[in-house]
């Protein structure tokens, strides 16, 4: 059995300075993302400014996450097997985001009758008898809850 294990108890001790530097980098990145969020960034190509803003925030977040994973969690120094399993969760997560493929390729909009009332009360809590005149032609005024 021992043949297959890379003996990790000859462990790698990372100097404090590395950790401290990482922490400083992380805090700086955090400040950078707050700072970047205070601007309305311009649109780039097909992406609207909103998307660009969000992309910047997420790229910084990913950078921070990578720092934490690589340095703090020590993946940089761990076995290939551990690296594979680190990746597996995130890869599967990307597959999960494949669900978005459905929402981007179909009409996804709720009909009016289904939204809760403008006064904020949930439609299911309104009395049955109440008949609300149609808001527009497409309104079905469906009763939500008996």
């Amino acid at each position: 059995m021992a043949s297959q294990t890379s003996h990790s108890h000859e462990h790698h001790i990372v100097p404090t300075s590395t950790y401290l530097l990482t922490l400083i980098l992380l805090v700086l990145l955090m400040l950078a993302t707050v700072w970047a969020a205070s601007f309305n960034l311009p649109a780039i190509g097909p992406f609207s400014g909103t998307v660009v803003n969000q992309m910047v925030a997420l790229i910084i977040a990913t950078a921070k996450a990578l720092l934490v994973i690589m340095v703090f969690m020590g993946v940089r120094w761990s076995s290939t097997l551990a690296k594979l399993w680190v990746a597996s969760g995130f890869v599967t997560l990307i597959l999960l985001f494949g669900i978005l493929g459905d929402y981007t390729t179909r009409h996804y909009e709720h009909q009016h009758g289904w939204e809760a009332r403008p006064d904020g009360s949930l439609p299911r809590s309104t009395p049955d008898e109440e008949v609300v005149p149609p808001i527009n032609a497409n309104d079905l005024n469906v009763k939500i809850r008996q």
Partner: peptide, 16 residues
């Protein structure tokens, strides 16, 4: 859908 949620989303996640 009362608050704008989607019942089909549950099916996506469930079948995932």
């Amino acid at each position: 859908p009362e608050l704008g949620g989607d019942p089909v989303l549950f099916q996506h996640l469930f079948w995932f």
